[in-house]
Amino acid sequence: MTLLELEDVTAFYESVQVLDGVSLSVPDQGAVGILGANGAGKTTTLRAISGTVRTGGRIVFDGKDIRGMRPDQVAALGIAHVPEGRGTLGDLTVRDNLRVGAYLRKDRKAVDTDIEYCLDLFPNLQDRITSNASALSGGEQQMLAVARGIMSKPRLLLLDEASLGLAPSTARNVYDAIHRLRTESGIAMLVVEQNANLAFTLVDSATVLETGRNVLTGTSAELRGMDEIRRAYLGG
């Protein structure tokens, strides 16, 4: 069953068109990647879904057209956006950041359990639990951003460049943890990633964007086998 469906989505910054008809679908509990060069519209696609950019076309989540909704309304439906650049709240402690993620939840007991789960998922955070987020390393901040996204108990996680600026081993750690999360929780994911190798460890299928539209869509296995993908995104 399809959880998220984008149909011919367009998007604008001021009057500049950034998306020119993007279509994709994320199955329930599935994980889909978005690949592409800088400026292809990957991040904008996520922002179109979370409602932070003006859009056209159709965006349906769980049978409901969410295009044009405010970001907080979208979030309330169960879509968590972990933005590029992380956006952790530097003035708050790690624990408080995690609680922020659970802002809309009423089940306090379960929130505490989920915090423990996050700390288990990202043991580095366990050690920094009372530190202010601004004191964390880049990798830790990325983990915190992902963990905070999980805390809202989303049905769909929008993950933007989770490896950006991280050392390769750290990036791998982050993706390993996300992979474990996916297996254990069944949260559906839409993953934007420059590093296609990393992306393919997580996603079942992916779509490739160029200048704001899809040029290729396939399963991970299919795409991995294609020469142009190999050349463009897999380093040979």
């Binding site: 309304q73 933005p83 802002y103 809309l104 905070r148």
Partner: peptide, 20 residues
Amino acid sequence: RAFAIVKGNENVASSMGISP
């Protein structure tokens, strides 16, 4: 808490379901 989040980062607030 919502005020603090809005103060900290409006985008984060939005993504948490809090209307800045």
